[in-house]
Structures are given as C-alpha cells and as structure tokens.
C-alpha cells in the first residue's frame, strides 16, 4: 500500500487488488481554512484523472477537487455530510471517495516528493 499525491493536493491510496481511496492533503485543508461543506460525487459517477469530481466549500471560497485516478465511484464518505470538519481535523484519515478503475502513476508524486514540495509553498 502506498499514498500518492496530485500536485493539486489530493491524495490517493493505491493498494494492489483494492479500490483507490481518495482524500485531500494537510496542506490543502490549511489553505482552505474551515471547511463547511463537501460536494462529493454520487455513487456510480465516472471520474477522470486530472478532472474535477466535486468541490469543497469554506465560508468565503470554493475549490474544485481534482481526481487523482480514473474510474467509477464505488463508495462515498457519508460522514462528511454532517461533519465536513473531519477534513480539517484529520485529513489523512478522512477519505472522500473510493474508486474502482485505473491510475497513471507517472502524473502523481510520492509522499516524500510531495511533502518536500509542500515545504516550498
């Protein structure tokens, strides 16, 4: 199992034989501030790597969520509906969606590279 990052600040857990698990990085949640709502995709939606699959709202801003993988949404984290603040308090353990499909890993960064980038921000 490994966690990869998109340069748009989403992470994905890639594990052989399992669905992809997608969330946002600690840097993303800090940049967004208090998250008040997550516009998650619906079950069965098709997502494409590099394209928007929803958005997150703070009080005065909204940011697109860019999918780090391609495929079909097989699970959506319903807990976020009533507790979007989980993305602020524990971003790496709070997933947004699970996707069955494929990933072009060449377009993603490994954890170390991403975190190094993060320091530059």
């Amino acid at each position: 199992m490994k966690r990869l990052y998109a340069n748009t600040h989403e992470w994905v857990i890639v594990e052989e034989g399992k669905d992809f698990v997608v969330g946002i990085s600690d840097y993303a949640q800090i940049a967004l501030g208090d998250i008040v709502f997550v516009n998650s995709p619906s079950l069965g939606d098709k997502v494409t790597q590099g394209e928007s699959f929803g958005d997150v709202e703070s009080v005065k801003a909204v940011s697109d969520l860019i999918s780090p993988v391609s495929g079909k949404v097989v699970a959506v984290n319903d807990a976020l509906l009533n507790a979007p603040e989980l993305l602020n308090s524990d971003p790496l353990n709070t997933w947004i969606m699970k996707v069955s499909g494929s990933v072009n890993e060449a377009e993603l960064l490994d954890e170390a590279t991403y975190l190094a980038l993060d320091k530059d921000h």
């Binding site: 008040v36 709202e57 009080v59 005065k60 801003a61």
Partner: peptide
C-alpha cells in the same frame, strides 16, 4: 449563510 453557493464566490459556476 451557505454563501459558497452564490455568485460572488462561485462566479460563472
């Protein structure tokens, strides 16, 4: 409240 739905934040979206 719920202002992130609105034009001054979402603009063309």
């Amino acid at each position: 409240t719920l202002q992130a739905r609105e034009q001054h934040i979402r603009r063309e979206k």
